[in-house]
């Protein structure tokens, strides 16, 4: 069984995620083949770009079914940026305009655009403060700076799914967690030592499950 499969949904940050996962000392492979994705011990779902385009890509490639199965089986799953937003019921995002688009609907809630008046996208390093005890944030409990670049943020229907929060004009949920399902709005693959630590923590979550 391959350790981690990074789902290839034609995301622009795919190679960066792969390189960071390798640098964190974890074994990983990139695939867009539903059969191979089903063999994974854990999944990473990277993502940047437009919500509507990504949802269409996933459905066209038939990647949504193995994602549902992996989550149902309790396999460790890490969604990054858009890869997290897609786990919710929907988003206002499509391209760079605003309209409602359905997501994978694994976590109740939706993504929302930052209010007018704030510079958007929210680009740069910001503090993510864990709001629950989470293995993903081991060693980062006091909060750490991570690299963000996004115009939409998640609003989980259930506040218990919030794992970390970040302030940008308002307090938004920058990480979500539901059992072994994790999502981060920031880019651990581009967040220096703090990001590599978070990826290693994800590796430990996988190892501890065995």
């Amino acid at each position: 069984m391959t350790e981690i499969i990074i789902i290839d949904s034609n995301s622009a940050n795919l190679s960066s995620v792969y390189k960071a996962v390798k640098a964190a000392g974890l074994e990983a492979k990139v695939s867009d083949d539903p059969k191979i994705i089903r063999t994974a011990r854990a999944l990473i779902f990277p993502g940047v770009g437009s919500f509507g385009h990504a949802v269409a890509q996933i459905k066209n490639k038939g990647l949504h079914e193995p994602v549902y199965d992996a989550v149902a089986a309790g396999k460790p799953f890490l969604g990054i940026c858009l890869g997290m937003q897609l786990l919710l019921a929907g988003s206002e995002e499509a391209g760079c305009s605003v309209e409602k688009v359905p997501g994978l609907n694994i976590i109740p809630g939706f993504s929302k655009r930052f209010p007018a008046g704030l510079p958007v996208p929210h680009v740069g390093w910001n503090l993510a403060r864990p709001v629950i005890k989470s293995a993903l944030f081991a060693g980062l409990e006091e909060g750490a700076y991570f690299y963000f670049t996004h115009s939409f943020y998640v609003v989980p229907a259930n506040d218990q799914h919030a794992a970390a929060k970040t302030s940008y004009g308002l307090d938004f949920v920058s990480a979500i967690q539901s059992n072994n399902l994790f999502g981060v709005q920031f880019h651990p693959e581009k967040s220096g030592p703090a990001g590599l630590r978070l990826i290693r923590n994800f590796g430990k979550i996988i190892a501890d499950r065995l």
Partner: peptide, 12 residues
């Protein structure tokens, strides 16, 4: 400003 000296995070 994001502080420098974050290498300590890497130690598990």
């Amino acid at each position: 400003i994001r502080p420098t000296g974050t290498e300590r995070y890497i130690e598990l």
